[in-house]
Every structure is written in structure tokens, then in C-alpha cells.
Simulated assay, not measured.
Amino acid sequence: MLNMGGPSTVPETHDFLKSLFLDRDLMQLPFQSLLAPWIARRRSPMIEQQYEAIGGGSPILRWTEHQGAGMAALLDELHPTTAPHKAYIAFRYARPLTDECATRMRADGVKRAVAFTQYPQYSCSTTGSSLNELYRKGIDGTLSGIEWSVIDRWGTHPGFIEAVAQNVERALQKFNPSVRSDTVLLFSAHSLPMSVVNRGDPYVSEVAGTVQAVMQRLGYSNPWRLVWQSQVGPRPWMGPKTDAALKGLAKLGRKRVVLVPIAFTSDHIETLFELDHEYCAEARESLGMEVQRAESLNDSPVFIRALADMAAQHLKDYSAGKISPTSVQMGLRCPGCENATCGKQKAWFAKGGE
């Protein structure tokens, strides 16, 4: 189960940030080996305060463990020919890192594995970076001797869409029936720098596809927009910004909103602090808005079943020779890609990790 991860305790924040800013698959900075630790030291005090505000650390590991255990138990029933199944977590910037995941897999004698991204929509900056790290561990012998296949994106899977739609419906129930259908749905996703978008990264279009599928499931019951959060630094990022959209809606007299995290599979700092503590609080207190936030997927049984269904279908189709180790879409590099590792990684996984 591949994801960015987050510091489980406040003291882990600095190491998390340093690992993030050192990742050249995510960003390329001048003198990165020197600049990244400096940025991490500078930002750590502020980010530590944010993690304190949400309970003393990120809950993403706890929720991923819960989702993984539930998925594996269901998989034993759905696809018994490959049972028993076990979920391993490989976070990119926080424990358990890929090295720790690899150690556990070796100790268990794993010979067959599915790299299952927990980012519903593909980006070279997220899923791509995690797959690059797995590839590096494969060719250096750390994860040798394992047959790999990949579930690289699933932003329109019916079970995922149903889980999100149910959470939106629960949030809408908190509004008076007389104004419920007029409430605006703001689907918020982590933004991307325009430099990444412009080189052909598919993330923006895939997030839009998810939003369209959710609205279709909801019967297009409400007006909606896709907005973007978590921009960092002075460079242009994909917009509009979530907080700017809230302010704009307030000026237009549209003061009832449901914020929907659409690119996250569990609560973490972007939902619990940025959406809840910053955007929702400001909208209510300063803009006079009535704002609800749709719950994250966390322990949703519908979502956990969706994960198991995806994995079971993948295993069935792969065993029957109906699919290759990687999807057709994963094999296509961004038109503006300049990362040689990306191409090598795709070729390695396409051969099952050989």
C-alpha cells in the first residue's frame, strides 16, 4: 500500500519534511542536498504546531493499517487461491518507509506482490515517486526475487465513488431541507505546480474524472466546483485555491458549502488542519458561511470493500493472463518527462519486476 505517509508523532515532523524536500522525483531544487534540510528546519516549527492541533501527529498510518487489514481479510474470501493475503505499508516520507516494508516482506518470504497505490488518481509526484523507490529497491537487491504487478490508479472505481458519494450525502443531511439542493459542493484536491501539469501529468484530468463520477452518482443534485489546496512557494500552481473559492462564493451570496476531500483516502493534516481548522473555521467565522466537511474515507466499510474488490479483480485477471503487470496508461510517460528513472521503472514493472 503506497502512500506519502505522515509523522505519527510531532517529533517525527522534521525528518518527514526533510525526506519530502529531498525527493527529486517530487521536486527538483538547486543544491537540493543542502537546501532541503534548511527548508525542513525552517518549516518544522509551524508544521509541528499544526500536528499538535490535530492531536499530536498524523493518523494516516493508523487508518492505512485499518484499511489494509480489512482489505486482506476480505481478499482471503474473494480470492482464496492466493490466500493468505497480507497488506504491507510503504510510506514515501514517514515510517514505515520502503526500506522497512522491504525488510518485513523479506522476513515473510514474499514471492508475489501487488504495488497498490493509495492515491486514487495518478501523478508522477505521488504514485510515480513511490514506484520509482520500489524500482530502486528492486534493482539494488533489497526487493529482489519478487514477482510484481501494479494497481496504479482507480479514481472512477464504482466502490470508491459510492463511498465518497455516501459521505457527501451525509454532509448534505446537516443542512435544512429547504436549502439542501442549493448547497455548493466544493471538491478539494491537493494542487500541483503548473510546471508539472504542463509537462503532461495526468493527475488534474483524473481528479476531474473522479468528481464527474461522484456527481453522476449523486444525480447532479447540487452545483459543484473542483478546487485545489496545499500550494507551497511562489511558483504558479493549479487553481482556483480552495480558500479563495470560499471567499468568492461568499461574495456571490452562496454561503452554504460542503467541502469534499476528493484525492485523499484518509484523514491527515490536509483534511484535519487545512480544511477543518483553517478553511472551514474562517468561512464560518469571517465569511458568515454555513460549511460542512464531508468525512474522509477512514473506516468506511464501503471503501474497504472497494479496495478488496479492486485487488481481487486484479489478481483474477492477472492469474488468467487477461492483463499485464502494468496498465496501458502507466506505460505512457508524460510528453515532457525528463526523469530517466521514470522510464526505467515503467519498463521494470512491465516485466513483473525483472
Rank of each mutant, 00 (worst) to 15 (best):
D25K: 11
E77Q: 15
R24V: 09
S19H: 14
I39Y: 00
D25G: 02
E77K: 11
I39V: 09
E12L: 00
A53C: 12
S44W: 15
S58F: 08
P59G: 10
S8P: 00
F21Q: 01
F21E: 00
I54N: 08
R41F: 10
R24T: 02
P59Q: 06
L61R: 15
P30E: 04
I39G: 09
A72P: 03
P11K: 01
G70P: 10
G68A: 06
E52D: 15
D15W: 03
R43C: 05
W63K: 10
R62G: 09
A40L: 00
R43G: 04
T82S: 08
S44C: 14
E77W: 09
S8E: 04
H85F: 15
T64E: 01
S33N: 14
E52S: 05
G56D: 04
Q32H: 06
I47S: 08
A40P: 04
M71G: 07
Q32G: 01
K18F: 01
A40K: 02
T9Y: 12
T82E: 07
R62W: 13
L34Y: 15
I47R: 12
I39C: 10
L74D: 12
Q28K: 05
H66D: 07
P84I: 09
M27I: 05
R62Q: 12
G68W: 10
D25P: 09
R43Y: 08
P45H: 07
E48G: 14
Q67H: 02
I39K: 13
R41N: 11
L74P: 03
L22G: 03
Q28T: 10
H14C: 00
T82I: 06
M27W: 04
A73N: 13
M71N: 00
S58K: 08
L61P: 08
D76M: 03
R42M: 05
G55Y: 13
P37W: 04
Y51T: 06
L34M: 06
F16D: 01
A69Q: 11
E52W: 15
L75D: 12
P84T: 09
R62E: 15
T64L: 00
G70M: 04
Q50Y: 14
L35D: 08
W63G: 02
P11L: 01
L26E: 14
K86W: 12
G55Q: 15
H85I: 06
P11C: 02
L29T: 07
D76W: 05
A36T: 05
W63T: 12
L22E: 00
I39P: 08
G70H: 06
A83Y: 06
Q50M: 13
P30M: 01
S33L: 13
W63M: 06
A72Y: 07
L17I: 00
L78V: 05
D23I: 01
T13V: 05
Q28R: 04
T9S: 10
T13S: 02
P84Y: 02
T82C: 04
D76K: 12
P37Q: 04
L35V: 14
I47F: 11
L17Y: 00
L17P: 03
R24I: 12
H14A: 03
D23Q: 08
I47E: 07
F31E: 07
K18A: 01
L74G: 11
D23W: 06
I47K: 12
E12K: 07
S44V: 15
